[in-house]
Design a protein around this nucleic acid. Structure first.
Lengths: 202, 202, 202, 202
DNA sequence: ATATAAACGAGACGGTACGTCCCGTCTTTCG
DNA sequence: CGAAAGACGGGACGTACCGTCTCGTTTATAT
């Protein structure tokens, strides 16, 4: 049996890519992001800071924006903030989660993420991953709570869950984008309360 | 009394700015926006296309982004789509308006506007104007409908109007940003129905 | 008469090019040439040293090689080493000139010039100018001496002047290229003597 | 007796270098030289074309220039165009040889060889070999003819042979470098005739 | 009518960053 | 264990725009 990998691995040749290098690049990108903002995350600056050649960066990402997206994704582990201990009611848990999302997106990092999302070319693979990880993961979490609230009889069973989710999470990004009102915990409570008002089981 | 303007006007001398030039610049910017997207709206390209010197553009705007915002604002007269003729119920009118807003932001121009808003420096005067004109004008329109619906007894009087408005208009930008579901008329109907469900007068 | 320039000047528009900038670039190029050799005359290094943007250099020259050629041409005024005072015989004057040419091309600058000539694209306008100024100017000077020598009866009148000139100046570049023997004053004397041996009027 | 080489060879271990590989590299280099010129003979391009790793090339040559020199040397077997059959006079034979040299250096390959020679670092071993093989071999051939011409009494015995050789072969490279006049057979005849004019035995 | 002065087109300028090519070295896996 | 493959740090390329700065040329007032 001369072959080691049974037709599953593509048999990589040549020097393998260095994970350490990749991490150094992401670290540098994250530092610049924090210190100087997204406009300064240029391939040139990141390469210089990471002690890396520009071509190495281009080997992994096709431009500074994609690099930024990866940096933001891998930098913030995106929590999955405690999947609700069951002790507490589903709607209360949802409210708490929305509050934490609001808080996250009220921060600089949150704004950067949204900006990046808005700027990105929508169809790239990385953009989709970023969207799922950064923008939609909270929405998916929320879906679990809503379903549980229905199971537990707190919400009516005929609720249009998808629309309800947009009602709950949409306003967060709206305020972030338009800035017409503050992003704080009170806001989180108001949204959830009002959005679910009409869905309550009587 | 040698002065004509009684110490209020600063007595303009020299050649006045040419409105035709300003319009040519905006026209060129809009064309590039349509043909090649917001990334290509560079001061250089606009100047070349408008047959204008770069300093002339900088005399009016401080960078390409501000120019784009003006172009977008003056290009789309922003409708103010018939302020509801009173014949029709306030909630129906609101639903129709939301549908038209959804349609507008489903277009390329709409996406460009939102992107520009996201990218803009939040504190500039022009950015505020842009925000009011492009992002918040629809919300303000909506507020009128909501108030009328309360007056007409369709909605309860103790409704938190501001939150309700965010509930209605937020999801539009959310879907535009995240792209997880389509922006169409059905969506408009669903949002309004669900958002107001809990505010209905019983 | 509204026009100032009577159809002779091409009516320059825009900010004129700064001669000071051009000279600073050439100075920097010459310095690098001296200190580090022709390989180090990169557009980037010259721009940095001259305190000039790269595009400014590309506005004048299309690559580092052309820049080097200009630097070498304008740097060494190419002497026209005293056009022979008439007091001395034409052949003696020629010998002295050849000796000075040998000396010049024995230097680093000389080698650089020849190398540049060899590397240059032959058909460019600048390459032709460089060839005339740096490589062929000495040959043209020599032609004057040969003619005078014929007039003065030192050489026969039926001599093939062009071939004779190649016989005299060719060996200089040959030795420089092949390096099989030294470039010194003795060599200059030998060449001229032997080359003209067969042309002496009897 | 397990060893093949009887203790005189340095006991080669491991996979021996493949001569086929070496030839493939040289072939690829020669092809690029022909098709795209000397500037395009980069180690990278040659490796790709020859289907060879870059380190393999660096194992044989220290840079692309040396590779080019070898390619040019081994590509053109350098003729040694008929070592004079004795039937014909030495001066006639010399004239014929000079004509063939002129023809060779009038070609693209000739120009490339001279360019390479000019660019090369003079002190490298390979550069010396190249110079001897490509630039000076014709001169050495010529020396034989000159000596024979003296022996045969066609030329005077007190001739400075080295200078005479430079007089004959120098103009070829001069014209190639400066391009002020064509390189053709007539030129070859003229040079030899004029150069030897003064050395003829009377 | 004639100065005066700002706006204008043109485009050069010092810069920053782009994305690409190639260098020469290194680190794997394959034959 | 040599050779292919190819990643790596690095340097330079030539280009696109940036925002600023002269230029010479209109074009309206204000004298």
């Amino acid at each position: 049996m001369p072959k080691k990998n049974k037709d599953q691995a593509p048999a990589k040749r040549g020097r393998p890519r260095s994970e350490a290098t990749r991490l150094a690049i992401l670290k540098a990108a994250r530092e610049i992001l924090d210190e100087a903002g997204p406009m300064r995350v240029t391939v040139e600056a990141v390469a210089a800071r990471a002690g890396v050649g520009k071509p190495t960066i281009y080997r992994y990402w096709s431009n500074a924006q994609e690099l930024s997206m990866t940096a933001l994704m891998e930098g913030a582990p995106e929590g999955a903030s405690d999947p609700a201990t069951g002790e507490v009611g589903a709607i209360e848990a949802l409210t708490a989660q929305v509050a934490s999302v609001v808080q996250r997106f009220a921060s600089r990092r949150g704004r950067q993420a949204a900006l990046l999302m808005a700027t990105a070319e929508a169809d790239s693979e990385l953009a989709k991953a970023f969207r799922n990880r950064v923008i939609l993961s909270s929405r998916n979490e929320g879906k679990v709570y809503l379903k549980r609230a229905i199971e537990e009889g707190d919400l009516r069973g005929d609720v249009a869950i998808e629309t309800a989710l947009d009602l709950i999470y949409g306003p967060i990004f709206y305020r972030m984008l338009a800035g017409h009102a503050p992003l704080n915990e009170a806001f989180a409570n108001e949204i959830v309360a009002l959005a679910l008002e009409g869905m309550k089981a009587r």
